[in-house]
C-alpha cells in the first residue's frame, strides 16, 4: 500500500491567518482561514501593523484547528510549508517564525513557498495539472501570465506595468464609494447592471502579453469628475460594468492569444480576482470556443488560503526543495522555478 503524505501549510502574507493539511498534494484534509476583514474594514484597507498584531493573536489557534480538524498529529506530517513571500513583511514574519518553531519542535523539514506558486497550485487541489499549461494570476498584488512546462517551472510571459488587477478593482471601488474590499462589490454591481459606460482598453504593443490598468483607473476618475462638474451624478452600476468589461476584455483576449501561441493543454486562473464572476464567465466561453480546457478553483481557493501553500509545498517537497531555519520573510520575493 502506498503511504499517504501530509503537508502542513501556513499562510500569513496579508490579512488572512491560515493553516491547512493537504494529503498527497491534491486532497484538502483541513483548511482554516481566519480573516481580518472585519477588523481592517474600519481603516478602509489593510494596515500592516494591525495585520501583524492580529496574526500573532491567531497563529497557534489556527494551526491547532487545522491539525485537529484533519485528525493529524505532527508526527504524521512530512513537512511544513509556509509562505516565504511576497507580501507584507511584518505579516510574513509571523507565519515564517511559527513554521520554523513548529518544524524545529517536531523535527520536520521546512519549505518556503512563493505565494503566487501557491495560488497556481490551488488548481492542483481540483484537477491534475497537465503541461504545458498557462496560468493567469490575478490578485491584489499581481497580474501575470505564466507558462509552466512541468511542475515547478515558471516562465513569466507577461505582467502588469503598473496597477495589479485587484488593486485597480479596489481603487475604482473607492472612487464609487464602496466599502473595502472593493473587488467583490464592483463585481456584484457590474453583474446587476444593464448598461455600461465605454472605457478604454490598454492593449499595449501588438506582441506584448503585459498589462496596464492605471489608465483605466484614471479614465473612471475623470469620467466621474466630468459628470459631477456638470452637476450630474454617475450611476455606479454603469461605471462598474464598464470598468469590469474593460478589465475582463483585456485579460481574456491576452490569455486566449497566449494559450494558442504556447499550444497549452490547459489554462488555469488563480488569485483573488479569479473569483470575479465576469472574468470566469468570459474566460470559460472564450476558451471553450478554442477547445482549450479551462479551470478555475472555487472562490474559497482563489482568495488567500493555506491549502494552496501546502499543495505547492508538496510538489517542492517531492522535488527535494528544503529551507533552513535562517529563512526570512521576503516581501519582494521573485517567482523562481524549482525544477
Amino acid at each position: 500500500m502506498k503511504k499517504d503524505h501530509y503537508i502542513l501549510g501556513i499562510e500569513t502574507s496579508c490579512d488572512e491567518t491560515a493553516a491547512s493539511v493537504v494529503k498527497n498534494g491534491t486532497e484538502i484534509v483541513s483548511s482554516i482561514v481566519s480573516s481580518q476583514i472585519q477588523q481592517q474594514k474600519q481603516f478602509g484597507g489593510v494596515v500592516p501593523e494591525i495585520a501583524s498584531r492580529l496574526h500573532v493573536e491567531q497563529i497557534t489557534l489556527v494551526i491547532e484547528e487545522a491539525l485537529r480538524e484533519a485528525e493529524i498529529v505532527p508526527k504524521d506530517l512530512e513537512a511544513v510549508a509556509v509562505t516565504e513571500g511576497p507580501g507584507l513583511v511584518g505579516a510574513l514574519l509571523i507565519g515564517v517564525n511559527a513554521a520554523k518553531a513548529f518544524a524545529f519542535a517536531n523535527q520536520l523539514p521546512l519549505i518556503g513557498v512563493h505565494h503566487i506558486a501557491g495560488h497556481v497550485y490551488a488548481n492542483q487541489l481540483m484537477h491534475p495539472m497537465e503541461f504545458p499549461l498557462l496560468a493567469l494570476i490575478v490578485s491584489g498584488g499581481h497580474t501575470e501570465l505564466v507558462v509552466m512546462k512541468s511542475h515547478g517551472s515558471f516562465e513569466l510571459i507577461g505582467e502588469t506595468r503598473d496597477d495589479a488587477a485587484g488593486e485597480a478593482y479596489d481603487k475604482v471601488a473607492r472612487v464609487l464609494g464602496l466599502p473595502y474590499p472593493g473587488g467583490p462589490q464592483v463585481d456584484r454591481l457590474a453583474l446587476e447592471s444593464e448598461q455600461s459606460i465605454d472605457f478604454p482598453r490598454a492593449w499595449l504593443e501588438a506582441d506584448s502579453y503585459d498589462f496596464s490598468f492605471s489608465g483605466l483607473k484614471s479614465a473612471v476618475i475623470n469620467y466621474k469628475h466630468n459628470i459631477e462638474q456638470k452637476g450630474g451624478q454617475i450611476d455606479p452600476q454603469h461605471v462598474a460594468a464598464g470598468f469590469q468589461q474593460s478589465v475582463v476584455d483585456v485579460l481574456t483576449v491576452k490569455t486566449v492569444k497566449a494559450a494558442k501561441q504556447f499550444d497549452v493543454k490547459q489554462v488555469i486562473a488563480a488569485g483573488g480576482v479569479a473569483a470575479n464572476q465576469g472574468l470566469r464567465k468570459s474566460l470559460t466561453e472564450a476558451l471553450q470556443k478554442e477547445g482549450i480546457p479551462f479551470y478555475v478553483p472555487p472562490i474559497a481557493l482563489c482568495t488567500d488560503n493555506a491549502a494552496m501553500i501546502a499543495a505547492a509545498g508538496y510538489e517542492m517537497w517531492k522535488s527535494g526543495v528544503r529551507s533552513d531555519s535562517t529563512m526570512n520573510g521576503r516581501p519582494g520575493m521573485p517567482l523562481k522555478s524549482w525544477n
Binding site: 497557534t60 517564525n97 511559527a98 518553531a101 513548529f102 524545529f104 519542535a105
Partner: peptide, 8 residues
C-alpha cells in the same frame, strides 16, 4: 511567535 508556537 517562536515562544508561543514552541509552547503550544
Amino acid at each position: 511567535t517562536i515562544a508561543k508556537t514552541l509552547a503550544w
